[in-house]
């Protein structure tokens, strides 16, 4: 299951329960993020256990995107599903802001490589 545009790719892999986000995600608001939010919810429903979100190649994510992912994390907290987020130390917004997702749900594990 993949959403792909010239600016970004969001791809969910059922085999390893991983959603990979890459490129530039600077969409206008909640409505524009809804397809990505829905993809994440569906990927989370595939298997028991942890869902991994690989954001290492996500160069930009605007605050509307951070809000959309935050809402997804809050949904995961409601159902008690653990989430692992993988980021890159070389992408400034990730080294600065990924930790915020952990503030919303203690079962978010952040790895910055």
């Amino acid at each position: 299951m993949t959403i792909q545009t010239d600016a970004y790719t969001v791809a969910a892999n059922k085999e390893d329960s991983t959603v990979t986000l890459a490129g530039t995600l600077r969409l206008q608001g909640r409505e524009q993020y809804q397809p990505i939010f829905d993809l994440l919810l569906e990927a989370a429903s595939w298997r028991e256990g942890k869902l991994t979100m690989n954001m290492r190649d996500l160069i930009f994510l605007n605050s509307s995107g951070i809000s959309a992912i935050s809402l997804f994390i809050i949904e995961m907290r409601k159902i008690g599903k653990p989430v692992a987020i993988v980021g890159s130390n070389e992408v400034t917004w990730q080294s600065k802001s990924l930790k915020n997702f952990q503030r919303l749900y203690e079962q978010v594990e952040i790895t910055i490589l």
Partner: peptide, 17 residues
Amino acid sequence: GPEARNLISTVVNELIE
């Protein structure tokens, strides 16, 4: 450097939006 570029672009984009 890429860190400064990411930082500047992120802050400018947030203020514009």
